[in-house]
Design a protein around this nucleic acid. Structure first.
Length: 417
RNA sequence: GCCGACGUAGCUCAGCUGGUAGAGCACUUCACUCGUAAUGAAGGGGUCCGCGGUUCGAGUCCGCGCGUCGGCUCCA
């Protein structure tokens, strides 16, 4: 079997019982199983923590909205093809079938930005509140063309780790710079380390905003990118009509490149939503908005990590971190005691108490790519010890229980192994 | 969305030119109690993707729909 096929996230997703795409739900709509759910939750939890430390505020918004919002944002003008068709609600008819009340359309949201703009606009804002960084794991729905749907990398329902940063023009250079640093640092924490940056500039045929604004923002993005000492590739004319962007292109272990993180300057939406803040001199000013997604979508990021690690997630992300394998039934209880100690330290641990033979249990755990196998037989029991088998096949026998627990906990906490 | 292929048990697949289904793994039960990648035996499980049509008879042929895969175009 080819390496690429062996690492294909769709194959691994089924083999490791992480997620599936039931036909009954529809094309491009995934369900995450308990194990995939665990990986995803750990990914999200770590991201939340880092965002919290970096000055983001967490918001929530609904999955559907009245049509008017997407008229204001302009999505219905330029993005309607990518949206699920509307639900028509609240219409009222008399006995003759004449309309008494026209009703209105509700849409599934394809993007989160309009909602965040409403949060910004919910009261007057002061320059003292800026930069304001609103973050949400926002689930969006896009009616992707049937031929492009592909596993978790191209879906119709996804969750973005979406943030919108509202700041003054003066704050933009520093904000773009620290943003890119933050993004790269976090991607490295997840184990990705082969990046280049891309700068998408204005498409002269299709844009809004003043020339000077574009030139200035593009230059700021360029400076931020150059500060990272990474290769910078120009994507001339590749920007969206509302502003330039830079993006992080990530190469995973089998060499495929994915665009994940994007930092996008937007001159357009603050205007459409009439966003304002009051500056120190008392005048009303328009903030600049930066759209950014770090994972891109959690689904795609999940797929990229799954392929990057070929399913062998590092211990901190692994759905099951430790499996206890008794040499015989007599040692089940002993291992359950060890498991309780690990569990008390927050480790995801199971004991394989099935009536398979020990060799078979090792094979099963190996195929599940579980980071730590803890074996115990009479020898270990009499020494109050366990024996490690790691998924690379190496082993370390007769480790005292307390040492084994510390070793596992520290590998998980330090995000090693 | 377009072009092409495909859809049989939870998974991977077999099933000749039409005569109402089979293997391995997984699962359940029993026996075995074993020191680093598969112990043995027995058993359960299938509206053959869906709906129509042709036929005495359709998993097998035809049409439509749904889904998957590969490519084009597009994207997080």
């Amino acid at each position: 079997m080819e390496e690429a096929e062996r690492r294909d996230h769709r194959r691994l997703g089924a083999e490791l019982d992480l997620f599936s795409f039931p036909d009954e739900i529809g094309s491009g709509l995934a369900v995450f199983h308990p194990k995939g759910g665990t990986v995803r939750r750990v990914m999200e939890d770590y991201s939340r923590r880092r965002h919290e430390e970096s000055g983001y505020e967490f918001v929530y918004s609904p999955h559907i909205t009245k049509q008017a919002l997407f008229e204001t944002s302009g999505h219905l003008e330029w993005y309607a093809d990518g949206m699920y068709p509307p639900m028509h609600l609240d219409a009222d008819y008399d006995d003759e079938g004449n309309i008494r009340r026209p009703g209105q359309n509700y849409y599934l949201k394809p993007m989160n930005c309009p909602f965040h703009n409403l949060i910004y606009r919910s009261r007057g804002r002061s320059y003292r509140e800026l930069p304001m960084r609103l973050f949400e794991f926002g689930s969006v729905y896009r009616y992707e063309k049937s031929g492009v749907v592909h596993g978790l990398t191209r879906v119709r329902g996804m969750t973005q780790d979406d943030a919108h940063i509202y700041c003054t023009k003066e704050q933009m250079p520093a904000e773009l710079d620290s943003l890119l640093t933050f993004v790269l640092e976090l991607l490295r924490d997840y184990g990705l380390d082969d990046f280049y940056l891309e700068l998408s500039t204005r498409n002269d045929e299709k844009y809004v905003g003043a020339d000077a604004e574009w030139a200035e923002a593009t230059e700021m993005l360029r400076l931020a990118a150059e500060n990272q000492n990474l290769d910078l590739v120009m994507d001339e004319g590749g920007a969206a009509f509302y502003g330039p962007k830079n993006s992080v292109q990530t190469k995973h272990a089998i060499g495929r490149t994915w665009q994940m993180s994007t930092n996008q300057v937007d001159f357009h939406l603050p205007q459409r939503f009439d966003l304002e803040y009051q500056s120190a001199d008392g005048s009303r000013q328009r903030p600049v908005m930066i759209h950014r997604a770090l994972f891109g979508s959690i689904e795609r990021f999940f797929a990229v990590l799954l392929e990057h690690y070929a399913g062998a997630f590092p211990a901190w992300l692994a759905p099951v971190q430790v499996v206890g394998i008794p040499i015989s039934d007599a040692h089940v209880e002993y291992l359950q005691g060890v498991a309780r100690q690990l569990h008390a330290r927050g480790i995801r641990v199971e004991v394989d108490a099935s009536d398979d033979r020990m060799q078979k249990k090792i094979r099963t755990a190996q195929k599940q790519k579980i980071p730590f196998m803890l074996l115990a037989g009479d020898e270990d029991v009499s020494n109050a010890a366990v024996s490690f088998r790691f998924r690379d096949g190496t082993q370390e026998n007769g480790i005292p229980i307390a040492d084994a627990v510390e070793r596992i906990v520290s590998d998980v906490v330090e995000r090693r192994a």
